[in-house]
Write a protein that binds this DNA or RNA. Sequence first.
DNA 1: GAGGCATTTTGAACTATTTTGGTAGATGTT
DNA 2: AACATCTACCAAAATAGTTCAAAATGCCTC
Lengths: 259, 259
Amino acid sequence: MLPAKRRARILEVLRAEQMVSLKDLSEALGISISTVRRDVDYLEEAGYLSRTHGGAISTARASTTFEPEAAIALAIESAAKAAIGAAAAQLIQPGQSVLFDSGTTTAAAARAAAGLTIPFTAMTNDVMIASCLSQNALVQTSVTGGTIRSGTTTLLGADAVNSVARLRADIAFVGTHAITPDVLSDTSLELADLKRRFLAAADRVILLVDSSKFFNRAFCAFGETSAVDLLLTDSRISADATAALKDRGIELRMVDIAP
Amino acid sequence: MLPAKRRARILEVLRAEQMVSLKDLSEALGISISTVRRDVDYLEEAGYLSRTHGGAISTARASTTFEPEAAIALAIESAAKAAIGAAAAQLIQPGQSVLFDSGTTTAAAARAAAGLTIPFTAMTNDVMIASCLSQNALVQTSVTGGTIRSGTTTLLGADAVNSVARLRADIAFVGTHAITPDVLSDTSLELADLKRRFLAAADRVILLVDSSKFFNRAFCAFGETSAVDLLLTDSRISADATAALKDRGIELRMVDIAP
DNA sequence: GAGGCATTTTGAACTATTTTGGTAGATGTT
DNA sequence: AACATCTACCAAAATAGTTCAAAATGCCTC
């Protein structure tokens, strides 16, 4: 394992546990105490954590922005999404047609899907997801058309809506900005309009949401949770949220993010 | 595999994974550790990533916003194309609608156009060009839709053709794989079909060709040189080629590049 | 175009450096 | 005092740097 990755995982554990012993870290990561000690010393020097006798504790400013190693921060933030994405990709069967909504979590699914060795057909309204999937020669990748929201990679507008509206797909991977026990919502009318089409166009709607989205509400509702066939999230979801969703009969699957 | 392609793929992997070991890259791309090391060192020197022991980490601030400009810079890797692209961008007037064909030379034009401070509307069948242009909030960027040729960023097929067919644009920047004094040609039927639509859809067709394309012939003709309103090329074009084109009354403009 | 020469690129072998995991004694904690 | 943790050091492993021959590419002449 790469030193940088190892350190990122140490911080990840620390964020979840608040404090952890070197011995536990050594066992959890499968590396020697000596290496853990060196890594923790390095991270203390860089200001990511504080040392105690026999362990480390997370510093308060760990959640704010830190400059020196942006990659570490990114790794932590995207760990949940990457895990959800990987689980999502596993659901694709050979020959199926798959819709990929635009978004960071669905992008993680696309990355994982691009690594599969099975053929399938994909359509997306995100140019980044498109170029990612098209790297794999087994994946027939189509793009919806439409107009790009400036500064993003998302295609919206009438062309995008029409492209999706005339499709019938096996699976749709859909993301959402916010979710309550009953309602999915996002930030703009155009986005909501398109997501509504995604929900309608697929036999099986799989919602990809990391645990930070529960339970919030955004400007525009685009569907009900009952329209979701499977909800993929990470294990940091609260017990309350789990219970509320199960009450409504929503199939829920959690992916573990602690190593 | 082409060095530029290889480096682009390394960056692609890095964007997805945040950090990778050289060993993994070597296995994933099927090339030796030595070559990976050289590529990664080169990319570090150019500022696309940073090195760690045994691997590389992404320097991109946000892992989700991939950097089309960087990708384009890698794809172009030619002073002639960059110069032609810069000259092309200068031709855009405020408020015009502009079509960008897929290709490395037109990508250079898109890159330069994204740096302009005037508003215009753009449509393209290349997802890399699209995401590059969309970085500029003054540019309203649309994408044709269609299916991606595996390993490229080009959208083709009926959707792409239909999107272009119903347009009327002020300018079309079109590239070509080969050019003779009379005929423009490219490598596949699908490509040719779409380029034909580009020629028909714009009031002013501007052909962007670096001097290496004279005079060659590719598999599929898609138009005549007489359909071209302005031909932009570099100063390495031969005198013979210049004469032959001028004989046919084609307006020709050369951009200076170092010999 | 075809063939031959120069240049660049690639992959492998080898050496130098860094990193890792273990050990022993010193230091700190309960 | 008993135990755990820390520091310092060492050998083994992994990685970086260097060099070189083979392969690929570009270039020129015919």
